[in-house]
């Protein structure tokens, strides 16, 4: 296939995945605010709603235009503000642009799913959306992302296009999980403080739900929510679809199908090997945040190498 088309398919899938991540992040933030802000010694609404802005690196731009952090303003900015390149609407527009540029390679099911999602949201403005309906909208968007993946896997030929879509999707997903984990506040051990324990519990739950891994935790550990275990699950457990290990496994498989001698595959292999062999105790000693940010850098490197390996043909 054309290098440019591969690039378009890669970014189409990557952007759809980013839409879902953003939506999940906003839903989890809402849940977190609901559960903990009123609790004694909680962070308060402002701190909780600042997190989506910090995670997406949009804090400065947001403050310049919206001045004050509140749930409504952050939602308006992160959902439907076209001037924010990280908003759901902007990212969805990018996904559709990339799909449109290469729609002759996509099945009608994929194109129509994406196009319909875009048509339903493109003229929507935050002022016209009822506050009570926001949760429904977010849920609907999540469903559309699932439908997109269903269309992708259910209708595409098992060929290069699908491999590039897969790689885009899992690189984005791994990056998001790592950043979300890295963005968690330091845990100093709640000790016997009942209120702090309660807070940790709710925050842990919101984190797991944001990554669709709440049930996975329950099924894997017969214990209370504990941040150490949550990190272990989301970093090392290969059976969890949003874990770092799960994502890098998929990237390796798709790259191997494309070209077993590519440079990008070598880098991905090394990263996979590291996750296969490392113990969670060692990760903690290195420092969880340092480990995660290093992981994100490796993903960036793989992404750059993929560009060189497949998309820039001389």
């Amino acid at each position: 296939m054309l290098g440019r088309a591969a690039d378009n398919v890669f970014w189409m899938a990557r952007h759809v995945e980013r839409v879902e991540s953003t939506v999940r992040l906003l839903r989890a933030t809402g849940l977190n605010a609901l559960l903990t802000s009123s609790a004694e010694g909680g962070e308060g609404d402002e701190a909780i709603w600042s997190r989506p802005l910090l995670l997406t690196g949009r804090m400065d731009d947001f403050m310049a235009r919206y001045e004050q952090i509140s749930s409504g303003r952050v939602l308006a900015y992160m959902l439907l503000d076209r001037e924010n390149p990280a908003s759901v609407k902007s990212v969805l527009a990018c996904a559709r642009e990339n799909a449109r540029a290469t729609r002759h390679l996509l099945t009608n099911e994929i194109w129509e799913c994406l196009n319909q999602t875009w048509l339903a949201i493109k003229d929507l403005h935050f002022t016209t959306v009822q506050r009570t309906a926001i949760d429904d909208r977010l849920e609907w968007l999540t469903e559309r992302c699932f439908m997109f993946r269903g269309a992708l896997f259910g209708s595409m030929r098992r060929d290069e296009s699908l491999s590039f879509a897969n790689i885009g999707m899992y690189l984005e997903r791994g990056d998001h999980t790592a950043r979300l984990l890295a963005g968690q506040p330091e845990r100093g051990g709640a000790g016997d403080d009942a209120a702090a324990k309660m807070r940790e519990y709710y925050e842990g739950m919101a984190l797991l739900k944001a990554l669709g891994s709440y049930r996975a935790y329950r099924e894997t550990f017969a214990s209370n929510l504990d941040f150490g275990r949550i990190a272990e699950l989301l970093i090392l457990n290969a059976t969890v679809p949003r874990s770092l290990r799960g994502c890098i496994d998929e990237v390796v498989n798709s790259l191997r199908a494309l070209n077993p001698t590519a440079d990008s595959l070598k880098t991905a292999h090394e990263l996979q090997y590291r996750l296969q062999t490392v113990q969670i105790g060692l990760v903690r000693r290195v420092g969880l945040r340092a480990f995660l940010l290093d992981f994100c850098q490796e993903l960036d490197e793989i992404s750059t190498q993929i560009q060189r390996d497949f998309m820039m043909v001389q």
């Binding site: 296939m1 054309l2 290098g3 440019r4 591969a6 494309l258 070209n259 497949f310 998309m311 043909v313």
Partner: peptide, 8 residues
Amino acid sequence: FMRTTRGP
């Protein structure tokens, strides 16, 4: 030639 993922 066209530029494909497997070369020209």
